[in-house]
């Protein structure tokens, strides 16, 4: 059967009959009677703005109803204001919206259950990070490994010990080759087992002729 003319009613007139209770009494049923001060004027506007920053706009995730320009956010702000004017306190109002949209609607999750993790995890993470850094520094100090800020010109004891034979070789070669300046330009020093330093004018290099060719000769020279 077709209903004509079209049945069309205003919700304001029908709401009490259709929903057994209006929205206001619906709020009381969910969160109890108003237990805050009845706000008005500037205090009402200030508290409305404060609460609007704590509620997430359900149609534009990530934005509070204070920041969102959507009609849904505007309607929610109006309702927050109405509820504050009716004397509901902050927690009652947040709980009312939570009963409709779930905990998701709160931008600051309340401290209960697994939510504690949200608040504690950053502090715990920072603490663990500090401990790791301290442990690493302590381990490096024990090993004697220098930090990056160390003077790059200074060698560790281990490095000095490793380089000592080369240093002796170079010194002895330098003192012997003082009489043959022509030999300084050669780049055949790789045959001696010391690093090739050709091109460094301040480092003298031995000639092939005076380079010891066997390990015995090298040792003799070093002595």
């Amino acid at each position: 059967m077709t209903l004509r003319p079209v049945l069309f009613f205003l919700l304001a007139a029908w709401q009490p009959m259709l929903f057994a209770a209006g929205v206001s009494s619906d709020v009381s049923r969910l969160v109890g009677p108003p237990r805050g001060a009845v706000l008005q004027g500037e205090a009402l506007e200030k508290k409305t703005a404060e609460l609007a920053r704590l509620l997430r706009c359900p149609v534009c995730q990530g934005l509070s109803i204070s920041d969102s320009p959507s009609p849904m956010a505007r309607n929610m702000r109006v309702q927050v204001r109405d509820l504050l004017a009716a004397g509901y306190d902050q927690e009652q109002i947040l709980s009312y919206f939570e009963s409709s949209y779930g905990e998701f609607v709160r931008l600051q999750p309340p401290l209960r259950g697994v939510n504690w993790l949200v608040w504690l995890a950053p502090v715990a993470g920072l603490g663990i990070g500090c401990l790791l850094v301290a442990a690493t520094i302590s381990r490096l100090r024990k090993r004697g490994v220098s930090s990056p800020e160390r003077d790059p010109g200074r060698l560790s004891a281990e490095e000095q010990a490793r380089l000592a034979p080369y240093l002796l070789t170079v010194r002895s070669l330098v003192s012997e080759s003082d009489d043959s300046p022509k030999a300084r330009r050669t780049s055949e020093c790789s045959a001696t087992g010391i690093p090739n330093v050709a091109g460094h004018s301040d480092v003298r290099q031995p000639s092939l002729a005076e380079t010891p060719t066997t390990s015995e000769e090298r040792e003799k020279r070093m002595q």
Binding site: L11, Q15, V23, M72, N75, M76, Q79, F97
Partner: peptide
Amino acid sequence: ESAKTAIA
């Protein structure tokens, strides 16, 4: 009106 029912 004002999406009160939708919000509820």
